[in-house]
Design a protein around this nucleic acid. Structure first.
Lengths: 203, 203
DNA sequence: TGCAAATTTGCAATGGATGCAAATATGATT
DNA sequence: AATCATATTTGCATCCATTGCAAATTTGCA
């Protein structure tokens, strides 16, 4: 992703980052819809046209990141341990991902500002769900490949969909109830346990 | 939804339906992005401005329906049988919903054309996912209310998220693999069974 | 220094979406 | 049937995101 060798590359990196920061700041200050691309570029002092050579759309600026999270999960699945159970692997992957979310504010990952925008602004929320769903498809595919002789594509999809569907809805509802980050995190864990044990475990 | 008493109402109903039909036809013929609202209104012989008094956006025309499906499921949950288990209720609701999808082409529900657009066009797919997620939230809330003393909000969310997440991802992947409607349907059933029994049941 | 490639920019155009006021249509009343 | 209040439709004007294109500028290297 960010190699940055010559002045050219460094300058581009700087501009891109400046655009992202200005955009997020303005979105927070006056709202997403109320902020125009022209205002963002004015704050960074580049032309409006330039914005669209860095991002394909106004929405994009909110989602731009090195998407390291997903890659890590995909790799963990692909490199599964020989004797490991599907459940054990999924447990390991989800724990890892869930923990990654916790202290992810260091990297440019999912800051509270971003999170707020993505859950609040309809257009962004929809886009975020689309990305999440695409991620699920990739994970399901990886899982099927990793356990080709045990899981057919549908079973792999069911496993991933169940796990992530449970975790996502539970954490969302937890957040909506105004719970603390710790409680949200706990909700995610509980939801995943329920998905693994089966709904019968709560009836 | 459609009461239709006087000429006024009937005319509006007719116009709305005509707009939907023209839109879907054009979307299929030349593609969603390639079709302009002006072209849709020209086909129905109303002004472009009028389109936006019937639908709030171009996307809306694809999703417009009486959303009877969700209402039915919500009602089933609210009217749950006294001694019924959470799992039994969910089984009943999901079977009912799944079957409803099967012969839903009669109503103006989810025609193949719509389905194709919603899974294909990025903007529509994202919007569809947003609507689906909102539905999940409503169902989880209903489930929590129906079993207030057995399920807290997080558990209810986990249950609904797990079940619908599994079914949705599994059916999507089944469709993507070019399977027949029967196979897609079967994939949905299998996924729900896995969600109910728990992922351990496949390890 | 000077050139070739990469970037930025300005400009024009398209298309979705909205506000507003004028023009029409509707239907109930007299 | 003529008339009036109300509901709809329509025609602008306008804003903004997005894109194509060609000119202008910058950068990196010879």
């Amino acid at each position: 992703m960010g190699d940055a060798v010559g002045l050219r590359e460094r300058k581009k990196l700087r501009t891109r980052r400046a655009l992202i920061e200005a955009a997020l700041r303005l979105f927070e200050e006056k709202g997403y819809e109320e902020t125009t691309v022209a205002e963002i570029t004015a704050a960074v002092d580049v032309s409006t046209r330039t914005f669209f050579s860095y991002f394909t759309s106004k929405e994009d600026v909110v989602f731009f990141d090195g998407e390291s999270r997903v890659e890590a999960a995909l790799k963990m699945i692909a490199d599964r341990r020989p004797a490991e159970t599907v459940v054990d692997l999924l447990l390991r992957v989800t724990s890892h991902s869930l923990d990654a979310v916790k202290d992810a504010d260091l990297t440019v990952e999912l800051t509270p500002a971003r999170r707020h925008l993505i859950t609040t602004v309809p257009a962004l929320r929809a886009r975020g769900l689309d990305l999440l769903f695409e991620t699920q498809q990739r994970l399901a595919d990886a899982l099927h490949r990793a356990y080709a002789d045990e899981l057919d594509p549908i079973e792999a999809a069911a496993a991933i969909g169940s796990l992530m569907g449970a975790a996502h809805l539970a954490t969302t509802i937890s957040m909506e109830r105004g719970e603390t980050p710790e409680q949200v995190w706990a909700a995610g864990r509980r939801a995943m346990e329920i998905a693994i044990r089966g709904l019968s475990s709560i009836g």
